[in-house]
Amino acid sequence: MKKFFLKWYPVILAFICLLYSVSLGLLGMTEEARYSAHWPATILLFAIAIRQRRTT
């Protein structure tokens, strides 16, 4: 289970941020939803960049 989370934590975190953004949009807070909608892509891009820079 630990290996699973160590490998997939960026995807899980991005999915949680996506759900947060969608819930804000459904509650009528469109500006906040639009702001937080960029978080999942940023998290995934940083995860890719960090994994490419690892030497091990």
Rank of each mutant, 00 (worst) to 15 (best):
M1F: 15
M1W: 12
M1V: 12
M1D: 12
K2V: 15
K2P: 00
K3C: 05
K3N: 09
K3Y: 13
F4H: 09
L6R: 14
L6H: 11
L6Y: 10
L6I: 05
K7Q: 12
K7R: 14
W8V: 06
W8K: 12
Y9F: 13
Y9H: 14
P10E: 06
P10G: 10
P10A: 07
V11H: 10
V11R: 15
V11L: 14
I12W: 03
I12N: 02
I12P: 00
L13G: 02
L13A: 11
L13V: 11
A14C: 12
A14W: 02
F15A: 13
F15N: 06
F15C: 15
I16Y: 04
C17P: 00
C17E: 05
L18P: 01
L18Q: 09
L18E: 06
L18F: 08
L18T: 15
L18R: 02
L19S: 15
L19D: 11
Y20V: 08
Y20F: 15
S21K: 00
S21V: 01
V22T: 13
V22Y: 09
V22H: 02
V22G: 01
V22W: 04
S23F: 05
S23C: 11
S23E: 15
S23M: 11
L24F: 03
L24P: 00
L24G: 00
L24C: 04
L24Q: 09
G25N: 15
G25S: 07
G25M: 07
G25P: 00
G25T: 01
L27I: 03
L27V: 02
L27R: 09
L27D: 07
G28E: 06
G28H: 04
G28P: 01
M29L: 14
M29N: 08
M29Q: 07
M29W: 02
M29H: 08
M29T: 02
T30C: 00
T30Q: 10
T30K: 05
E31T: 07
E32T: 09
E32I: 04
E32C: 01
A33F: 03
A33I: 07
Y35A: 14
Y35N: 10
Y35P: 02
S36H: 11
S36W: 13
S36G: 04
A37Q: 04
A37G: 12
A37P: 02
H38F: 11
H38T: 11
W39K: 06
W39R: 09
P40F: 03
P40A: 13
A41K: 08
A41R: 13
A41T: 12
A41Q: 07
A41D: 10
A41E: 11
T42K: 14
T42V: 12
T42C: 08
T42D: 10
I43T: 03
I43H: 00
I43V: 14
L44R: 03
L45I: 09
L45C: 12
F46C: 14
F46G: 05
F46N: 07
A47Q: 04
A47P: 01
I48G: 05
I48M: 07
A49E: 06
A49V: 13
A49F: 06
A49L: 11
A49M: 08
I50K: 10
I50S: 10
I50Q: 12
I50N: 13
R51K: 15
R51T: 05
R51Y: 04
R51L: 04
R51V: 03
Q52P: 01
R53G: 02
R53F: 08
R54E: 15
R54P: 00
T55F: 15
T55G: 03
T55N: 13
T55M: 07
T56V: 09
